[in-house]
Amino acid sequence: MKLYSTNNKDLEVDFATAVFNSMPLDKGLYMPVHIPELDQAFIDNIDKFTLSQIAYKVASLLLRDAIPLEDLQSIIDDAINFSAPVIPLEQGGDTYVLELFHGPSLAFKDFGARFMSRIMAYFLRDNEKTLDVLVATSGDTGGAVALGFLGVPNTRVTILYPKGKVSEIQELQLCTNGENIHAIEVDGTFDDCQALVKQAFADEDLNKKLRLTSANSINISRLIPQTFYY
């Protein structure tokens, strides 16, 4: 899978580079050079497939050149191990709701965070420097990233959240994991948390000591799994 920057179509990178960089240096967004189409027979019979099977079909078309299909299947089985049921609002009615809160943090962001963490772990080699993931959150993102990366080898997650501005459940999701997950309460707003994260990425000395990345919502490995349930 090759991706280009929306600010410079001549700038192409492979999937792994896009995953770890999140966004190009020219501040564009990474987009696939080629977007394959699902065959009509699959679309016509999509109700016969499980969410995991749909996820594998979509991901295999996009990532077959980046990850061996057997490994991709294992990543999906591990990451998307919960359902996204379509529930009728009332019995016999024709209006339905797609429920996206069946993951570990009870937020739709579980799909992206869990897939991204497994993809990053897959590309990290055993002898590589630990990957430090920095996240600023106002609630949902932090919980999903914390539970998505919990126990993932070669990763260390630091989550900054504003004091008194997340729910009790969200704070517990951030602060009670241990292992490779670290939460820091900031006496300020979400914008203050975000500013600290940006300051860290702009610090050349810090970046020489640590291998920093972000669990940013525009990361291609968070965007791909959000197509699975649509």
Rank of each mutant, 00 (worst) to 15 (best):
K2D: 06
N7W: 07
A16Q: 14
T17L: 06
A18C: 10
V19S: 08
V19G: 03
F20E: 05
N21P: 00
D26K: 11
D26M: 11
D26T: 13
G28Q: 06
L29C: 11
P32D: 03
P32E: 05
I35S: 08
E37F: 10
Q40G: 07
Q40R: 09
A41Y: 09
I43Q: 07
D44K: 13
D44P: 04
N45D: 10
Q53G: 09
Q53M: 08
I54L: 03
A59H: 03
S60F: 07
S60R: 12
L62S: 02
L62I: 09
R64D: 09
A66E: 11
I67A: 01
L69V: 13
D71G: 12
L72R: 01
S74N: 15
D77A: 15
A79T: 09
A84C: 15
Q91M: 07
G92K: 04
G93N: 05
G93S: 13
V97Y: 13
L98R: 10
S105P: 05
F108G: 09
F108Y: 14
G112K: 06
M116H: 09
R118C: 02
I119N: 00
M120T: 06
Y122H: 15
Y122V: 13
F123A: 10
D126P: 15
D132S: 13
V133S: 01
V133M: 02
L134T: 00
L134A: 01
D140S: 04
G142C: 03
G142S: 02
G142F: 01
G143I: 05
G143M: 06
V145W: 00
L150W: 13
V152M: 15
T158A: 01
K163M: 09
G164P: 03
V166M: 09
S167V: 07
E168R: 10
L172W: 03
T176E: 06
N177C: 12
N180R: 13
I184A: 03
V186C: 05
G188A: 05
G188S: 04
G188K: 00
G188I: 01
T189Y: 11
F190W: 04
D191Q: 12
D192Q: 08
D192K: 06
A195R: 10
A195K: 14
K198G: 04
F201K: 03
F201L: 11
A202K: 15
A202W: 10
D203G: 04
D203L: 08
E204M: 00
L206G: 00
K208L: 05
K209M: 09
L210P: 01
I218F: 08
I218L: 12
F228Q: 06
Y230E: 13
